[in-house]
């Protein structure tokens, strides 16, 4: 039948797919730009709590993270809540050193504006969090952030 004959003169021409790569590239670039490669491997589970009054952290380069939660590798670290600094499990005494180390990475005038973001698992007991806060106070790192997910207020 003439209708399905590609070379029939009267039929509409095939849709050009030449612009398809362009469209896909556009999407590709969007994802490339918006992707933030994970900087550290988390060795602890951190399911963040929900909160209504959260604010976005504006200057990410001034933020250092402290993770607290149950270790993923239970054979090595057990099941009690642990602190992770950089990419290793640390103990409470390592915090002061970590703060100094993070401060050394920044310019001098930025040090005052640094924020320490606590990424803490919902089910962590407050005891360890309080200890960490106490350590931070000792080294005058007073600006902290409790990382939490946005929840719409009822």
């Amino acid at each position: 039948m003439g209708k399905f004959d590609k070379k029939s003169k009267g039929g509409s021409p095939a849709i050009s797919t030449a612009s398809l790569p362009d469209i896909v590239f556009m999407l590709l670039f969007f994802f490339m730009v918006s992707t933030t490669m994970k900087e550290v491997d988390t060795k602890v589970y951190t399911r963040l709590p929900d909160a209504t009054q959260v604010k976005k952290i504006e200057n990410k380069s001034l933020v250092s993270y402290i993770y607290i939660g149950t270790p993923k590798n239970t054979d090595e670290f057990g099941t009690t809540d642990a602190i992770q600094l950089n990419d290793q499990i640390a103990n409470i005494g390592g915090i002061q050193q970590y703060v100094e180390q993070e401060r050394a990475k920044r310019k001098e005038k930025e040090v005052k504006l640094m924020t320490f973001s606590l990424k803490v698992d919902e089910e962590t007991k407050m005891g360890i969090v309080v200890d960490v806060k106490e350590e931070l106070r000792k080294v005058q790192a007073l600006r902290i952030n409790y990382a939490s997910k946005k929840k719409e207020s009822k």
């Binding site: 994970k38 007073l142 946005k150």
Partner: peptide, 25 residues
């Protein structure tokens, strides 16, 4: 292929939270 790679690896990480000042010691 590239697109799918980035789609999978992307974690739209939102750094949000409650910022508080600790009292000085």
């Amino acid at each position: 292929l590239l697109l799918i790679f980035f789609l999978v690896t992307t974690t739209m990480e939102v750094s949000s939270g409650i910022t508080r000042m600790l009292p000085p010691l």
